[in-house]
Design a protein around this nucleic acid. Structure first.
Lengths: 334, 334
DNA sequence: CTGAAAGCGCTTACAG
DNA sequence: CTGAAAGCGCTTACAG
């Protein structure tokens, strides 16, 4: 364990000078700096993060709080955020909460993150007003992906608009019996996002003068098996849909699989559109509303870095664009 | 920022006693402990991790080093490891290296992890002898998922055996023109694992007396597009295969897609088997060699915890079983 | 059972 | 430009 003391002794300077030299601070002569740098490299000196944090008050770590990491969207966002954060010198502490309410509580109460990170990045979790208050009180900037939270940085897509776009596409193709496969309406972790997509679905139908039919609104839980079960229920309907809008591509794939298994042609007998542009969607030839995933991770990371650098600047809320990608799973009705 | 000082003052004891009480150490009367606990809870006291680390020498954090997190296998392992580590009080620092040699170098040299984590979990990266030496010198226990490294904990599947099992299945079905879609042979990050699967493929063919044909050994890079390109090349062969063994399920899916697109029936004209039992494989009706992913993450986490608790105990190397899951993408030859 | 004190390894005003 | 010193908030022998 070589310490700053060892470097100072070897370089013949005080530890204060070593610290300044290593941090590139002014008030160190170029010659001294070079000598310190050389000695430090020679001794393979690496400052103790704990000691540095304790003394400086900065942890140089960012906490990422998400319900899952083993899900396409979250994994991609974490990956891209990390790629942006690491070069800036920040470590990434991962808090994958699952659907555990207790863990969520601990994370948002600050118990988990307190004095441990300089900033927090929340993914796909809509904080309650109380959670916003407690996490804000913790001090550091907070960034959110998926929702807009006043006072916090955020990046997201227009959920309702994306849903409307998908449904509009189906309507334009002549469909009128359009089903929806969404998330769990009461899922405590992921409620608002699917809700917005449902709102978009209903809104676009209404705009087209198509009467709502609650039987066509199903729950897929954002999983393949959930969507498969939902699709099976839809197919058993007395008047089954001619088109399905799934709130995620993975659910769309599950729906397509069930439909084909039941002997339906896609898009001949059933059109299916998703949201995401999942990495497997092109292979599936799936029509979808693409959202920029990497970009959201990078943007969120950059907003956090900016907030860390200038605590007083206003916290931006960015909406990134989505776009309809028409592929082979949607076609004209009838 | 309430500190241990505040708690001590409020409870009318010294900070040493607060520390002992909070850690459940002996030499504190039950009455005092209760009082301290109550005061601490009241003040919402959370110890500063930096200060605790500096004083104790333990960071209570574990570094996870992986080439990607946004890939099914890695995401699942990270998630399950985290679920096991958090209840034990450990934080998870994520180092997603990508294919960046510089980052890899930094991670394994210890520059990144030095004094920052108590243990390291390496996923899907086979360390060089030099990397093993430097990371071992860092002190803490190291766990590896995917490879066996002498002196380190490890958990993995029998890569060669899994490959043999897949190929054996195809041979048993009467296939003799069996192609292989693997990883990049020269990929610095992921070389050994695909290599072992290739060895298994060749070994099983040889055992069955089937002559090797290098034209049937293709590179898919462990991605869907890579496998699609590989499959296209295979189909253009003068004497194309009747069966394909893909070294991952995602590659198998890509291969199937290309084959069907080319008008081939799967499994009628082409049988395809993968490795993984990816979450989408059941939907794809894909025959595969299943590996327990969650179990590997949990096991690795537990081995690390055990090593942390008893540094002198020998570091186990565990091989978890795989099993052939016969579904609908493989059938009799001809 | 409890406290005073040293020490963990840094950063950062403050002098010079 | 450089150093001595205080201080960050804990843990942990060492006394008592």
């Amino acid at each position: 364990m070589t310490t700053i003391r060892d470097v100072a002794d070897a370089a013949g300077v005080s530890i204060a000078t070593v610290s300044r030299a290593l941090h590139g601070l002014p008030r160190v002569s170029e010659a001294t700096r070079q000598r310190v740098l050389a000695v430090a490299a020679d001794l393979r000196y690496v400052a103790s993060p704990s000691a540095a944090s304790l003394a400086s008050g900065q942890t140089m770590a960012i906490g990422v709080v998400a319900p899952f990491v083993n899900r396409w969207f979250f994994a991609a966002v974490v990956h891209s955020a990390e790629e942006r954060l690491r070069p800036a010198g920040y470590d990434l502490l991962l808090y994958s909460l699952g659907t555990n309410a207790v863990e969520r509580q601990r994370a948002f109460s600050g118990t988990l993150l307190h004095k441990r990170v300089d900033a927090v990045l929340v993914l796909g979790l809509q904080p309650t007003a109380e959670e916003v208050a407690t996490l804000s009180a913790a001090g550091g900037p907070v960034g959110v992906v998926g929702f807009a939270v006043p006072g916090w940085c955020s990046v997201r897509i227009d959920e309702e608009g994306a849903a409307r776009c998908a449904v509009r596409h189906l309507i334009d193709l002549g469909h009128r019996r359009i089903a929806f496969i969404g998330g769990e309406p009461e899922d405590p972790l992921l409620s608002a996002l699917p809700a917005d997509r449902l709102v978009g679905y209903r809104g676009e139908l209404a705009a087209a003068g198509i009467p709502a039919d609650r039987a066509l609104e199903t729950v897929g839980g954002f999983t393949v098996p959930g969507a498969m079960a939902a699709m099976e229920r839809l197919l058993r309907l007395p008047d089954p849909p001619t088109a399905v809008f799934a709130a995620s591509d993975e659910m769309a794939m599950g729906a397509i699989h069930v439909a084909r298994h039941a002997g339906l042609r896609v898009p001949g007998d059933l059109s299916v559109v998703g949201i995401d542009d999942h990495e497997m969607s092109e292979m599936f030839d799936l029509t979808t509303v693409a959202q920029p995933v990497e970009a959201q991770g990078v943007l969120a990371a950059e907003m956090l870095l900016a907030a860390l650098a200038e605590p007083d600047r206003p916290r931006p809320s960015v909406t990134v664009p989505t776009r309809l990608v028409v592929r082979g799973t949607t076609g004209r009705a009838g």
